[in-house]
Design a protein around this nucleic acid. Structure first.
Length: 853
RNA sequence: GCGGAAGUGGCGGAAUUGGCAGACGCGCUAGCCUCAGGAGCUAGUGGCCGCAAGGCCAUCGGGGUUCGAGUCCCCGCUUCCGCACCA
């Protein structure tokens, strides 16, 4: 009987579907396990890079199921997004049509791979039944002040006359037409993620089962720094600057250096800049320079080095410690969005300020030295950024930096000029998109009542079917009058809907909760169901989501928690970031034309060979280069297992073959095979469950198969696959019942361990071995540590660090006996005779090391 | 520039607690089987010396700790990733 995997794929996929094998409900009597792979953007075709992630998750899910867990393993579609809309603009299908057909195709691909999803829980974020709850949650956040509206700058393409997302700005220009991108101020909706900044940062310490790399990236992204806000009063008021007219507030982490602050720098976006321009001798030139900095910023940042530029505003501020007036400049490297958008410049102790001062001939004053002695400013070749002892700092001279910071902040605080603060790099999350294919933001603007949420009972605000996608103008929804024009829920008067849609990262920030209760039409989910299933026990996906998706999801978990819907803070207990699959050294992509299509591989080798290969080729987190020959090797292994079973099937498959435990006595070869089988169970279990080293789990099984071949070779039947000789009658020649029991035990363990990797082949073999129940419902094999233990071990003996002999000894040999045997070994004595053994180190069960002189 | 990870045969990779480096697979070589082999089975396969027994060298390079280092420490090189004027 030859191995024809394609037939097995079909047969078992149909059976699993018919028996609803992977559908689950809450069952308090069993431990639960929530296994989740990041859901997919339905681009149309999954390539083997995507598929790797689903296979990893499936191996984990299938293993956990066999180990007695109630396993939730769902899948869904991150179905809103730009590519579908852009295709429509280019004259393609409506996003709704193309998305549905892409989903259908990709779902088929996953099903052909035999991934054990609970398909009845499938969801797509473009379904109104799903995005209704985005809107519901948005309104709850609005009520709590976590969603708010303010002006902010966005990327604007003057040629296409539209807003661009950050990722659509390529080298400072529009991705479509190349026109340099401008910044524009627009009203935008924001989520107040910064309210949770400290918590999101601090709780990274609790994520012990996340990769350190991801935690580091998140910590850096949040970017907490402690310092002080200090007010530098203006020498004279700036007309037309409103409340901010009488002082510049700066943020500094080095208030200890403030006596060396010889000028103040404003970012070009700072509100005072515009006001100062109006009062300068040449307002037009002033504005032109400031505007140049703002547009330059983005383009220059890409080229890496930005030359420091600036100009004097002509205004001066008073250093609150020295009471001296210092010039105010506008500088291109001061960021408008960070801190207060203004800094005090201390050229002696900050490298950026140092370069700026040297370039524009501004004064440099040393106020911190390593030893408390003056340091001539003229001798500096770079800024002295280290902490030290203060000098030339009035009453604070002689203090250490840390103590000075505390005292100086306190002193200024009394005068109302400073305040200790914590600053974050993390900014509030702007979620408005001037796009069609996303969740409509459920807000209404009324002249009389202002911003009014759509009442809950009117949700969802359904995305209208738009016929034309021109790609021009503002949000496509604004061009649909029957969508825009609405009556105000408060006063009933004429009002206007919000026409922006939500960032698609909103959709993906909570879908893992919805899987726990995907058809609920009264709430986003039943808290009891989420309490049973969540947090996700095992989450895997690409490292490219290390910051965005994973930080947003952590934020949403806290929002749900504070709404009383969930009782945890962290949604993902364990995170695995799987490596990409490369072809020709590059990440697979349609545009590069280097995608490997799983369906082609399936037709040739079957789903199991593909699954096995992808697991065997490298540990899951590692990047791998696709290799057809390797896939063929995995196919060969499965065929080899198949032949092995074929060879033994009649002999061991019958009734009444008992356990080796009931056999009177096993011969050495039988004991060795049995030991190997039990030790393989131990290794494979640990590799999957503890180490997540799926590649070594596969190689352990390959070793067992090799040993079973060798054992078969030793019996009179010969090795499987070798053509039966005329003089050997294959069937029935094995007279040792013990051998039959041992082989049966080994095969049954092997096929169960193999089943998460190669489920179709395993099911078929299981059935051939006489089992009526599917292997997916079988229990994971157990091992007996006593049997798994080696009876005899080989212990190397080193002389002066080199292996000179090997002793074969009983496993339980004592250290003293080992030492005696080593010294008595003839091969060793040739190295020790006539010399002194100065030291003997015995690592029991491992090695003996002699130092000889 | 800063931060992180990594560097092991011809290739992918293994080495679990500091204890036999190279498991397992690919590729390659030989034998068997065969009308045939790009199938299968068996054996071999880090380099150098040697008929062999055996010896020497070997985990990016250089030092160190240790009876013993791929693994720990220091210096350097290379690659990949992340951040990149965050005051």
């Amino acid at each position: 009987m030859d191995y024809h995997p394609q037939e097995l794929d079909r047969k078992w996929q149909q059976r699993w579907a018919a028996s609803r094998a992977f559908e689950v409900t809450e069952d308090p009597s069993r431990p639960k396990f929530y296994c989740l792979e990041m859901f997919a953007y339905p681009s149309g075709h999954a390539h083997v890079g995507h598929v790797r992630n689903y296979i990893i998750g499936d191996v984990v899910a299938r293993t956990k199921r066999m180990r007695g867990y109630n396993v939730l393993h769902p899948f869904g579609w991150d179905a809103f997004g730009l590519p579908a809309e852009n295709a429509a603009i280019k004259g393609g299908l409506h996003p709704d049509v193309s998305t549905r057909s892409n989903i259908a195709h990709m779902k088929g691909q996953l099903q052909r791979l035999g991934i054990s999803y609970a398909w009845e829980r499938e969801l797509a974020t473009c379904d109104p039944e799903y995005y209704k709850w985005n809107q519901w949650l948005f309104i709850r956040m609005f009520e709590k002040g976590l969603a708010y509206r303010r002006r902010s700058s966005v990327n604007w393409c003057p040629s296409c006359n539209t807003v661009l997302a950050n990722e659509q700005v390529v080298d400072g220009g529009c991705w479509r037409c190349g026109t340099p991108v401008e910044t524009r101020d627009l009203e935008q909706w924001f989520f107040r993620i910064t309210a949770y900044a400290d918590e999101l940062l601090g709780d990274t310490a609790t994520l012990t089962r996340w990769p350190e790399k991801v935690l580091t990236m998140q910590r850096n992204w949040i970017g907490r720094s402690e310092g002080a806000r200090v007010r530098f009063p203006l020498e004279r008021k700036v007309e037309g600057a409103g409340a901010a007219a009488d002082a510049i507030e700066v943020f500094t982490t080095r208030i200890d250096t403030i006596h060396g602050a010889t000028f103040v720098l404003l970012g070009p976006e700072h509100p005072l800049v515009a006001a100062m321009a109006g009062q300068s001798p040449d307002p037009a030139s002033f504005r032109r320079q400031a505007q140049a900095f703002r547009t330059q910023d983005r383009a220059a940042r890409i080229s890496g080095e930005i030359e420091k530029q600036g100009f004097d505003t002509g205004f001066r501020a008073i250093n609150p410690f020295t009471d001296e007036p210092v010039p105010i400049w506008v500088a291109n490297f001061v960021l408008g969005e960070y801190g207060t958008g203004a800094v005090m410049a201390v050229p002696a102790h900050d490298q950026r300020d140092f370069e700026f001062a040297r370039k524009f001939n501004l004064p440099i004053r040393v106020v911190v030295t390593p030893d408390g002695r003056p340091l001539p400013a003229a001798s500096l070749t770079e800024a002295a950024e280290a902490y030290g002892t203060l000098v030339d700092s009035g009453p604070y001279s002689g203090l250490g930096s840390a103590e000075a910071q505390a005292r100086m902040t306190a002193a200024m605080r009394e005068r109302g000029l400073a305040e200790a603060t914590v600053q974050y790099r993390l900014k509030d999350w702007g979620i408005s998109r001037q796009r069609y294919w996303g969740t409509p933001i459920p807000m209404i603007y009324c002249e009389k009542d202002g911003i009014v949420p759509v009442p809950d009972e009117q949700l969802p605000v359904v995305l209208p079917k738009v016929a034309q996608f021109s790609g021009r103008g503002d949000s496509p929804l604004a061009q649909v009058p029957e969508f825009v024009n609405v009556s105000c829920p408060t006063c009933g008067g004429a009002a206007r809907r919000e026409t922006d849609t939500m960032d698609t990262f909103v959709d993906s920030s909570w879908y893992f909760y919805r899987f726990a209760d995907p058809r609920n039409d009264g709430m986003p989910f039943d808290p009891a169901k989420v309490k049973y299933w969540l947090p996700v026990d095992f989450y895997s996906g690409g490292v490219e989501h290390a910051i965005l998706h994973l930080i947003y999801s952590r934020f949403f978990a806290r929002v749900f928690r504070d709404l009383g819907l969930v009782d945890h803070s962290e949604p993902f207990a364990q995170l695995l970031t799987q490596g990409m699959v490369l072809k020709g050294g590059a990440v697979m992509s349609k545009s590069k034309g280097n995608v490997v299509d799983p369906d082609t591989m399936l037709q040739k080798y079957g789903a199991d060979a593909l699954r096995l290969y992808v697991m065997f080729v490298a540990p899951p987190e590692k990047e791998v280069e696709w290799n057809d020959a390797g896939l063929e090797g995995s196919f060969r292994f499965l065929a080899r297992v198949w032949r092995l079973v074929d060879h033994w099937c009649e002999t061991v498959g019958g009734e009444g073959v008992g356990s080796p435990d009931d056999c009177r006595e096993l011969n050495p070869a039988e004991r060795a095979v049995r030991r190997k089988a039990h030790d393989t169970i131990r290794r494979v279990t640990a590799d999957i469950e503890e180490r997540q080293q799926l590649n070594t789990a596969v190689s352990a099984m390959m070793e067992l198969v090799n040993d079973l071949y060798a054992f078969s070779e030793q019996t009179v039947t010969g090795a499987p696959g070798r053509r039966a000789d005329e003089d050997v009658d294959r069937a029935g020649v094995i007279e040792r019942r013990e051998a039959i029991c041992v082989v049966r035990e080994a095969l049954e363990a092997l096929v169960r361990m193999l089943s998460p990797f190669a489920p179709h082949t395993a099911e078929e073999i299981w059935e051939r071995l006489g089992h009526a129940q599917p292997i997916a419902e079988a229990a994971w094999p157990a091992f007996n540590p006593e049997v798994a233990k080696a009876e005899e071990i080989v212990v190397p003996v080193q002389v002066n660090g080199k292996v000179r002999s090997r002793l074969t000894v009983p496993a339980e040999v004592s250290e003293r006996e080992l030492e005696r045997l080593a010294l008595a070994d003839p091969a060793i004595q040739s190295y020790t005779s006539g010399k002194t053994v100065k030291k003997v180190v015995v690592a029991r069960g491992r090695l003996v090391s002699l130092v000889v002189q």
